[in-house]
Design a protein around this nucleic acid. Structure first.
Length: 432
RNA sequence: GCGAUUGUAGCUCAGUGGUAGAGCACUCGGUUGUGGUCCGAGCUGUCGCGGGUUCGAUCCCCGUCAGUCGCCCCA
């Protein structure tokens, strides 16, 4: 090595594009594996779509709010301008719609699919808000008519997927947009999006502030505001059924919501909560909507998982009527916020269960044989790379969180947590 | 995109108008092969970048870039 200073480019983390240490990644993968198993246990099938879509596909539904990252070559020249402009997908619903439209004849309906991929949004990053993150989505799409039972299946699956992650109590709030939209229609309110966005902020701003915004920014009368806010306080199947609808749309919403809640009554008390203040600011949801809170993690204030029903998912891409319902876990948000606040306890830095000591260069073959026997017994096994001092080899195992050290020369295994060491047979021994 | 705040070793942070320190981490050692504690030694920095003021700036001023938080929006 030369004594001259090496020229180094000091790398900086790209904000909003997270990466984890090995011990964190290990847990992330366990979580993803668990979620995948739950999704599959309900018959959802995996598809993977490309990271990039044509800009026209991405914007077909008028999603101008979501900042789309576009893809260009660094060496782009005039010939590139003739090519289709492409961008990274900002969710998995738009790719699903495109996919369903393109493979319509080859798919079987109702099409139940899950997807666990990264998505990209060019927003300002913050804790719990990334520019690159995983979403774990399930959606069901059918032709012409999708039974309401699926609206009830979404929260049931999500409850199972999340409740095993050791993140405390989950609460899934459910509403039906037809109720509020029906009310607004009966009131003669035409521009509904600002109203729904404002109502959606109820738990953050409180009723007074929301009333003020509704009157000042949305031009609603005090009377109307009161009616809307009163509606948002209703919860429980009985109370929902007791609402007097102002029109057919409201009536439909009430019946649908009551039905979905009924279907979910088998879940533990408190998991499902009807909350008519949940409307979602997004305009493409047409019926049932979901939002999920973590009741035992006070630092986690945003929704970890949300979704809803859309009347016509792929209408922009195919001349068919394809209603769907879906829900999405904001996986990276969930993982990162919990990690940041110390709720995720990582111990192991590698998947290794047993480190086999290499006592001596001459023992490599023997050591490899022991390792192979242990692997055959279902263990993850690493052999130390050099015949260094035993203390050093043990320290390596300790640092990496490996639970056991095997001494092939002694035929003994040492439990690092307890410090005990005993004779053992590599083919029959089992880690605890 | 708007507003606020920050930018010194791998990490967390001190510090001064005269070219820098601690803790942690890391490496080696503590009588010739069994970790975690303890002790000793060692290693590490264009003090974000560019310009200005000054005899001289990491410290003052301007700009810039980047991070963080809030808003917006959302997973």
């Amino acid at each position: 090595m030369s004594k001259d200073k090496k020229q180094i480019y000091k790398p900086k983390a790209i904000s909003g594009f997270p990466e984890w240490l090995p011990e964190e990644r290990l847990i992330e993968q366990q979580w993803l594996d668990h979620i995948r198993r739950v999704f599959e246990s309900y018959g959802y099938t995996s598809i993977e779509t490309p990271a990039a879509e044509e800009i026209d596909v991405l914007t077909a539904k008028g999603e101008t709010d979501k900042e789309i990252y576009t893809l260009t070559r660094l060496q782009a020249d005039d010939s590139d301008k003739r090519e289709a402009r492409i961008g990274l997908h900002f969710d998995q619903t738009v790719p699903l719609a495109r996919y369903t439209a393109m493979h319509f004849n080859e798919l079987d309906f109702p099409f139940k699919r899950y997807a666990m991929q990264k998505v990209w949004r060019g927003e300002r990053p913050q804790l719990g808000r990334m520019r690159e993150f995983y979403q774990c989505d399930i959606d069901v799409i059918h032709v012409d008519h999708l039974p309401l039972h699926f609206d009830a299946e979404m929260p049931a699956v999500i409850y199972e997927a999340l409740s095993a992650l050791d993140i405390g109590r989950i609460q899934i709030k459910i509403s039906n947009r037809k109720i509020l939209l029906g009310l607004l229609d009966a009131m003669g309110v035409e521009d509904t999006i600002p109203v729904t966005r404002t109502v959606d902020k109820l738990d953050k701003l409180g009723p007074e502030e929301v009333t003020k915004l509704l009157m000042n920014d949305c031009g609603l009368s005090k009377d109307h505001c009161e009616k809307i806010l009163h509606l948002t306080t209703v919860s429980g199947v009985a109370d929902i059924r007791a609402i007097t609808p102002d029109n057919d749309q409201m009536k439909e919403g009430i019946e649908e919501l009551a039905f979905v809640l009924d279907q979910l009554s088998h879940l533990p008390e408190g998991v499902i909560k009807a909350d008519l203040s949940i409307v979602r600011g997004l305009d493409y949801y047409t019926g049932t909507v979901y939002e999920t809170r973590l009741l035992d993690i006070p630092e986690f204030t945003s929704s970890v998982c949300s979704g809803g029903r859309y009347d016509d998912l792929a209408g922009s891409y195919i001349n068919k009527h394809l209603p769907g319902v879906g829900i999405s876990i904001g996986f990276t948000r969930l993982f990162d916020v919990l990690r940041h606040h110390g709720y995720i306890k990582a111990h192991k830095k590698c998947p290794t269960d047993v480190l086999v000591i290499l006592p001596d260069e001459d023992m490599r073959a023997e050591t490899a044989k022991v390792a192979q026997a242990l692997r055959a017994g279902g263990h993850n096994v690493e052999v130390y790379h050099a015949p260094q001092k035993i203390g050093k080899q043990i320290a390596y195992a300790e640092k990496k969180g490996i639970g056991y050290v095997w001494f092939p020369d002694l035929g003994e295994v040492k439990n690092l947590a307890s410090g005990t060491q005993e004779k053992a047979n590599a083919t029959t021994w089992k880690a605890k």
